[in-house]
Nucleic acid binder design. Structure first.
Lengths: 107, 107
DNA sequence: CCAACGAGCAACCTTTTGGTTGCATGATAG
DNA sequence: CTATCATGCAACCAAAAGGTTGCTCGTTGG
């Protein structure tokens, strides 16, 4: 199955924006929060934050649910772990490639 | 010292493109390679690949050096570790937030 | 009740991004 | 030597991204 780069790229893309990564950080330390709350403190509009949250949601990094008139957005750490594991695999393969090179040179 | 989301976002952004993440994967398993070699097998132009490599270089994920008429691009795993560690911190903070919530509810 | 509050939707705008083509230049294999 | 090979640079283009404004609509605190 060879979990391809194509499948993981969207997760990194979602995290690859200053504002979105900031949202993720806020959600991680502050727990589930509403859009209005998340907008507070940023120089952006509520709609901008909404758009960013949707991007994060589409990537599976975040999940939103409506309660009454407000919505609560919370982190979905599974996808973060997935990304972490992918980076781990890349590093491991690189190390292996280096070892092979070293063995070849010393041959 | 404030949360460094702004500093880490560029790394994720660099990895957040299918083509670039593919390049990283190729470099990790195949060792240092030239642009022509990296272009081979993709449906893209050499220049497109060049641009992607520059983006990765700017993010510190990859490093290029010229040897004669060709250039060799290799992975720079330090930045990948940095990203990995950041994700770890986020996950840890989220877990802590969950624990606090649980303690509060059970109170 | 009803005014204010939280949020959704849509149109619109500007900048960035991903890609191409064309041309120029320094190495190098034969 | 010289034809070819590996790159670099610049101009250009279409599509996507990041943001804003304006309007609507359900929810709720007082």
């Amino acid at each position: 199955m060879r979990s391809s780069a194509a499948a993981k790229a969207p997760i990194f893309a979602a995290l690859g924006d200053e504002t979105r990564l900031g949202l993720v950080a806020r959600l991680s330390s502050g727990g589930a929060q509403s859009i209005a709350r998340l907008t507070d403190g940023t120089p952006l509009t509520r709609q901008a934050i909404t758009k960013h949250l949707r991007v994060l949601e589409l990537a599976g990094v975040v999940r939103g649910s409506r309660h009454g008139r407000e919505s609560a957005w919370e982190l979905q750490p599974r996808k973060l772990d997935e990304a972490k594991r992918y980076l781990d695999r890349i590093s491991a393969e690189w190390d292996a490639a280096l070892s092979r090179l070293k063995a070849f040179v010393e041959d």
